[in-house]
Each structure stands twice: as structure tokens, then as C-alpha cells.
Design a binder for these strands. Structure first.
Length: 746
RNA sequence: GCACCUUUAGCUCAGUUGGUUAGAGCGUUCGAUUCACAUUCGAAAGGUCAUAGGUUCGAAUCCUAUAAGGUGCACCA
């Protein structure tokens, strides 16, 4: 066939995503339109336009892009492109996260593997230097991969959790909370990781099922059960429920003499409701130093607390002859001794229970009592200037009350709705938050000691002899500041005033308790405001059979492979269509392949529309009026625009993508184009001109509606159009819901 | 144990405040086609809406119970 003059050469082949995507990426980058300031400067966005802002949940600097990231990027980019086209002053702010514990342990592992050294051999300064080299080298990877999804992030505002502005924000936040009495140092029971030698937050603990022998021991007149006989040396309190009739004869505070592992001891009876009458014999002994529940019982009754196991899991002198051995090795020897003494009643070999492990690559958790820094969530403080409904400026409140108020009042809306319940459940049960970590990589606690003096401040105190607290802050402490530390806080910047609170926080539902909760806490206290108006929680990406993607199952689908094979547009669509908000998504390679066909379909539709136009190159004149029939078809496309907008506004991106997909393929291509063929080949020039114009207008509307979902192919087409309203589709005007008049040239 | 989610065609899912004959994509079968299409188009088959009750003129949709699958939390000393 003779190619028409209207058809650029590229269109004579199928759509080649690999070839086009690179070109389009650099086109966007050069345009600078991801930066809202550039949009205002170039007149694309009105200077006083409403703002729409999202702060990207920062991926780990040392990580690589997985499907979860890809889904997040696709969803956020759709929201961003849509609002940008609608004329909002739109900011999507990128960043990366240092992921303190995970990153440090990676570097430490490599250090040990390659040089057989530990961090103590090389020291704090050297270790931090190596971590820095490591993160610098790997951050380019994740940034490049992020860009390849087509993410229209404003890289001129890039932030890293460990850079200088964020450091200042973290220090300032700590000092302010310290001065308000919300941060305190105390000896409390914490989750201790003996392997990584650090505390771990409650939320980072993962319970794993494990089968162990369960021992029943004779403790005076009682039988007690335990999986961990090695913790029992110090047990001198025996606890039972106050209503337990079986033990009514024993009075609270009464003492009894009995024979125990290392000889006779005096035990004291404690009546406490924490004892479960249904479990075992209903009697337990407690080890307050290594169990949260036991610690709380001990605190309620003012009992003695003795440490049994040290930081490395070694038994202390209280263990008598077992002192100095590791708990793992000591257990069997202790059981042997109990047996000899006749204290072992029986053993249940297959007892299934949950053990706490550190989900951040550490080992088993050993509760310990430690001097740590905490954020008191139930402590009263005087609220400053407040915009949070229900928490008046200057009133007395607590962090917990403030966090509840933010969501109860709907100032922060969480979608889907049922996650609100989960939020309330979480916040309601929140305990004081342990924020100190005994690792080296992170924001060091801004507290200095000199003898008994303590000083807290952003800068080190003047004069010699001061020593800084060696601990660093929990990574979530700085993450909690993310929506405003990235905008320049603690400075009162224009960005902060313009874009905060952010419009939407979009993240996986699994991270709600860690992050969303902490951001509301930090923003509430430090700014007296919410961090975002809406929280949009997406589901997890699973494999075709609904299983989690994991290395061991070998079912990981790598987004970069998909981009390579089928294009970024197809990858994006496969992560959005069929992904009902908050529900998990089953992804298979076939799905991605299917959407590649769609990208090609759009390409070919364009080819047809251009081919069937007159050689003069689609310059419509007033004489090229559409007839009523064709006008109605254009109006139909605009009605579709209203539907798409409605679905996006309701966060139903799956429906929005689905209706536009269906329209473009099965209405526009299969029906409207097919029906127009006879006229296009016919002799009636007036009818033909009307058709040509109708097809072109619908093509334009379709490209615009598709653009947020599949930005590459639509932009590539836009670049080849002979007549267009803006240099890039990215900043073209979103189609109005109802078209006022059809007689203006496009 | 507590809470939440899911259950609609072979598969993946829509179904908006209850309202005609429950829809789409993929897959299957049949047909057409190389005249925009690394093909595409048309048509067909396929559903006791998990189960049992209830509310209602009317229920996939609301209520109660049950079952199966999943997730989170709590944990058992």
C-alpha cells in the first residue's frame, strides 16, 4: 500500500515500546514539566491553581524495583498525571530511604565475608564510610528503575532520609519532643535482638511458628509449664488468677519454701488476672526481666526484677553452675538436672507455639530490660496551634488522642474504609514507642552527657568533656517526618506552605501501622496538622495463583523484565486493571502480554486515522463542520471522559482504566471506525471531512484519557500528530466532561 | 482466641444508593478476513451469584447463622 503523507514512518511498523520509551523519557525530562514551578513558568498551570501533592513512599536505597514498587508507582503516577492535566499545581516528590538496620547488616555481612572483620574491628567512622559508599553506588539503580516506569516525579526535589536537610529535621523534631516531655529515657522491657545487638520495635517483630518440647515442672505444691527452663532460675514469684477456686487456699503475698533448680528458695504467691485459668495448671512463675507480660505483672505488684540472660544470650551468675553458657546450649543440661532432682513431671514433645523474630533480617527476639529512649504516647502535653478537628489550639492532649482525632474527624480519610478500624485498633493499643537503636547507621540521638549532666540540642554543647549518646534513632522516627521534612521543614518554606498537608498518601496496606500512624503522630505534634488528607491503601501483588512472590517459590515476576518484553505501559495497565482498591492482585505474565496488544491497538488506530485524513495534514477549517451524527459521537467520547474522571476521583483506577480501554477498543475501533470506512472511501467530500474530523477529535480525547494509564505510547503518538494543542501530551488539557461547542478547531 | 477481608461463567474480576433478561476480559467452539492491526472482526456455548434462613412488592446487593479460603492482632507461661 502507498503510505499516506500524513503517516509518520514509525507507524508503518508495530509499536516498539523499547525504542519509544527511551526517547519519551528524555523528552519529559527535558521539558521539566514534572516540576510544578516549570509548569507555572511556562504557563501550563495557573500560578494560583489548586495544589495536588503526593510524597513518594521512599524505596530502600540499596534495593531493586519489585512489583510492589511498580504498582505503587503506576497508581501514584496515574493520580499525578490526571491532576496535572486537570490544571492542578501538581507535585510528586521522590526520595529514597536509608533502611538503617537492613542496610547496616548488609554491609556488615559483606565485611565479614570479604575481610572476616566485624564492625567493632573497623570502628564507627569507618563503617559509616563504607555504608555511604555502598548506598551511593546502589541508589542510582533504584532511581533509574523508578524512572523507567514512566513516573513523572520531580527529581529536582529529591530527598534522602540521611541527607543534610532531613538530618536537621530529625534533630529539631527530637529536641522539640524532648522539651515537651514526650521523649524520655527509661529502663523498660524492650525487644532485644541478640544477633544484631539492638532493640527492635514492636511492629518489626514477626511471629514464626515453631515446635518445641513443653516441660511441666514441679514448683513446690504447683505444676508450672514452660518451653524455656533456662529462664527459670530467678523465678521466685508464683502467679495465679484471683478467681481460681483450685488455689483459693493460697493468699496473695503468702510465702512458701520449695526446692528449685539450684537449691531451696522462698516463693511468694501473687494473685493477678493475667494468669489464664484455662492454660495448663493455671499457675505460672514469672521472669520479669525477659517477658513483657511478666514485667507488667512485676510492675503492678512492685516485685523484684532480676536479669538472667545477658545481651548476647549468656546466662548470668544467678544461674549458678550454668552461668556463662549460652541459653541454647544450656537448656538440655538444665532439663537433665531437673530430671535428676525429680522436678520434671512430664514433657510434651510437640508443642507448637509462636516465637518472636526480627523481621529486618535479625534473629530471635530476647526481651530485655534496657535503658532506652521512648516517645510517650499517653503523656499529656499542651497542643500548640492546631488545625486538627477536635484538638483545640492550646488544649491539653496526648499523642494518642491526637492521632485518634485526626481520623475520627475524617480530616484524614482512609480508603478503603475498613482500614480505619485497623487504624483505631492499632493506635488504641499503641505502647510507648522505643526509638533508640544500638546500631551505628542512622540519625544519632542529639543528647550529650558529661558526668551526671544531660544536654539535648541540635548542636553539641559548648565546652569539652561532653559525650554524645551512642545510639541512633529508629528509622520510623525520621520516616514519620517525611511529608514535611521533604518540603523543607523546619524552615517555613514556600513548598511547605504550598504543598502540605499533602493530598494523598498511597502505600501498601501492610505498612499502615509502621508508617501512616507515625506520620500522623509527627505531623500532629510538630505542625499541629495532618500530614495528608487521604490515605489510599493498595493491595499486595501476588502471582497468578494468589501466592506471595518469593525467591524460594521462584514465582517472582520482575517489573523490569516485563518492561523489556511488553513495555512499561502494558506493565502499568496489568497492575491497575482488575486491582480493586485495597485487595490483593493476582498478576501473571499473560495479563501483561494482553495489554501490550492494547498499546499496539492504539498505535494502529492512530495510523488509520492519519491515513484516512486528507493529504493537507489535518488543518481543520470552519468549513469542516461535523454533521449532527458525527458530533454526537464526539460527545459520547466526552461523556466517557466524565466517567473516567469520576472513577479516578473515587480512587477506582481499575474501573477508570477499564472503561477507557473498552471504549477505545470496542467502541471507537470496532464500531465507530468500522462504520466510517464506507464514507471515507466514498465520493462525498463534505461527509468525508466530517468523518475525518470526528475521528481525529475522538482520537485526541482517547489519547488524553489513556495518558495517565499508558503515558509512553500516548505521548509517542502525540509527538507525531500534525496538529496539537501542547508540545507534550503530559501537560495537555484533560477533556471537559461536556463539550460546549464543536465548531472550534482542535 | 479476637477482628477484618474474600466467595458471581473454566480462569481473573465488574456489578455504584436494593429495581427489567446478572456483565467484561482471557480461555473454549464456530465462522469471516490479509482492504489500520506481529493479526483483527463477528457469533455461540458457559452462572442454583458459597450454603441455609430472614426483611421486602422486589435481594448478587440489606440482616442473621454456617462453611471454605486468606490477612492482621493477641498470645499460652
Amino acid at each position: 500500500m502507498e503510505p499516506s503523507k500524513n503517516v509518520p514512518e514509525d507507524f508503518l511498523k508495530p509499536y516498539n515500546s523499547l525504542e519509544q520509551e527511551d526517547k519519551i523519557l528524555s523528552l519529559w525530562e527535558q521539558s521539566g514539566y514534572a516540576n510544578p514551578d516549570v509548569c507555572v513558568e511556562k504557563g501550563v498551570t495557573a500560578a494560583d491553581a489548586e495544589t495536588f501533592s503526593i510524597v513518594l513512599p521512599p524505596p530502600n536505597v540499596t534495593g531493586t524495583l519489585h512489583m510492589g514498587h511498580a504498582a505503587m508507582l503506576a497508581i501514584e503516577d496515574i493520580l499525578i498525571r490526571y491532576h496535572r492535566m486537570k490544571g492542578y499545581k501538581t507535585l510528586w516528590l521522590p526520595g529514597t530511604d536509608s533502611a538503617a538496620i537492613a542496610t547496616q547488616s548488609k554491609v556488615e555481612e559483606a565485611l565479614y565475608k570479604e575481610e572476616k572483620k566485624t564492625r567493632h574491628d573497623i570502628g564507627r567512622v569507618e563503617l559509616l564510610k563504607r555504608i555511604d559508599i555502598f548506598t551511593e553506588a546502589s541508589k542510582e539503580i533504584i532511581i533509574d528503575q523508578t524512572k523507567r516506569m514512566g513516573s513523572s516525579l520531580d527529581w529536582s526535589r529529591y530527598a534522602y532520609t540521611m541527607d543534610e536537610p532531613r538530618y536537621r529535621a530529625v534533630m529539631t523534631a527530637f529536641v522539640r519532643m524532648y522539651e515537651a516531655g514526650l521523649i524520655y529515657r527509661g529502663d523498660r522491657i524492650v525487644n532485644w535482638d541478640p544477633k544484631l545487638q539492638t532493640t527492635v520495635s514492636d511492629e518489626e517483630i514477626e511471629y514464626k511458628e515453631q515446635t518445641d518440647p513443653f516441660y511441666y515442672l514441679q514448683y513446690g505444691p504447683f505444676q508450672i509449664g514452660t518451653v524455656r527452663p533456662e529462664t527459670k532460675f530467678g523465678d521466685k514469684y508464683v502467679v495465679m488468677h484471683p478467681d481460681d477456686e483450685r488455689y483459693a487456699q493460697y493468699k496473695h503475698g503468702e510465702t512458701i519454701e520449695l526446692e528449685w533448680i539450684n537449691g531451696p528458695i522462698t516463693a511468694t504467691i501473687i494473685k493477678d488476672e493475667a494468669a489464664d485459668m484455662e492454660f495448663g495448671s493455671g499457675v505460672m512463675t514469672i521472669t520479669p526481666s525477659h517477658s513483657l507480660i511478666d514485667f507488667e505483672i512485676a510492675q503492678r505488684h512492685g516485685l523484684d526484677i532480676e536479669q538472667v540472660i545477658d545481651d548476647r544470650g549468656i546466662l548470668l551468675p544467678i544461674a549458678g553452675e550454668f552461668a556463662g553458657s549460652h541459653i541454647k546450649k544450656a537448656r538440655l543440661a538444665i532439663v537433665e538436672k531437673l530430671k535428676e532432682k525429680g522436678l520434671l513431671v512430664r514433657v510434651d514433645e510437640k508443642y507448637v507455639h509462636n516465637v518472636a523474630t526480627n523481621s529486618r533480617g535479625g534473629g530471635m527476639i530476647e526481651p530485655q530490660i534496657k535503658r532506652q529512649w521512648f516517645v510517650g504516647v499517653n503523656k499529656e502535653f499542651k497542643m500548640g496551634e492546631s488545625k486538627i478537628p477536635g484538638i483545640p489550639s492550646g488544649s491539653m492532649t496526648t499523642l494518642k488522642q491526637m492521632m485518634l482525632a485526626a481520623v475520627e474527624s475524617d480530616a484524614v480519610d482512609i480508603v478503603p474504609d475498613h482500614f480505619k478500624k485497623i487504624y483505631f485498633h492499632w493506635v488504641g493499643n499503641l505502647r510507648d514507642w522505643c526509638i533508640s537503636r544500638q546500631i551505628w547507621f542512622g540519625h544519632r540521638i542529639p543528647v550529650w552527657y558529661k558526668g551526671k549532666e544531660i544536654y539535648c540540642g541540635v548542636e553539641a554543647p559548648k565546652g569539652g568533656g561532653w559525650e554524645q549518646d551512642p545510639d541512633v534513632l529508629d528509622t520510623w522516627f525520621s520516616s514519620g517526618l517525611w511529608t514535611f521534612s521533604t518540603l523543607g521543614w523546619p524552615e517555613n518554606t514556600l513548598d511547605l506552605r504550598t504543598y502540605h498537608p499533602t493530598s494523598v498518601l498511597e502505600t501498601g496496606y501492610d505498612i499502615l501501622p509502621f508508617w501512616v500512624v507515625r506520620m500522623i503522630l509527627m505531623s500532629g505534634f510538630l505542625l499541629g496538622d495532618i500530614p495528608f488528607h487521604r490515605v489510599y491503601l493498595h493491595g499486595l501483588v501476588r502471582d497468578g495463583q494468589g501466592r506471595k512472590m518469593s525467591k524460594s517459590l521462584g514465582n517472582i515476576i520482575n517489573p523490569l523484565d516485563m518492561i523489556e518484553k511488553y513495555g512499561a505501559d502494558a506493565t502499568r495497565l496489568s497492575l491497575v486493571i482488575g486491582a480493586q482498591i485495597g485487595n490483593d492482585l493476582k498478576l501473571s505474565e499473560d495479563r501483561v502480554r494482553g495489554y501490550k496488544h492494547f498499546a499496539n491497538k492504539v498505535w494502529n488506530i492512530t495510523r488509520f486515522v492519519l491515513e484516512s485524513s486528507e493529504p493537507r495534514g489535518l488543518t481543520f477549517r470552519d468549513s469542516d463542520l461535523m454533521n449532527a451524527d458525527d458530533e454526537e459521537k464526539v460527545r459520547e467520547a466526552h461523556r466517557l471522559a466524565a466517567d473516567v474522571s469520576k472513577h479516578i476521583d473515587g480512587f477506582r483506577l481499575d474501573l477508570a482504566a477499564d472503561v477507557v480501554y473498552h471504549f477505545v477498543w470496542h467502541r471507537f475501533a470496532d464500531e465507530i471506525i468500522e462504520e466510517s470506512k464506507a464514507v471515507l472511501k466514498g465520493d462525498d467530500a463534505v461527509l468525508r471531512a466530517s468523518k475525518q474530523r470526528m475521528l481525529y477529535e475522538i482520537l485526541i480525547v482517547s489519547l488524553k484519557l489513556l495518558h495517565p494509564f499508558m503515558p509512553f505510547v500516548t505521548e509517542a503518538i502525540w509527538q507525531e500528530l500534525p496538529q496539537k494543542e501542547s508540545d507534550v501530551l503530559m501537560t495537555a488539557k484533560w477533556p471537559a466532561a461536556a463539550k460546549a461547542s464543536a465548531d472550534k478547531p482542535v
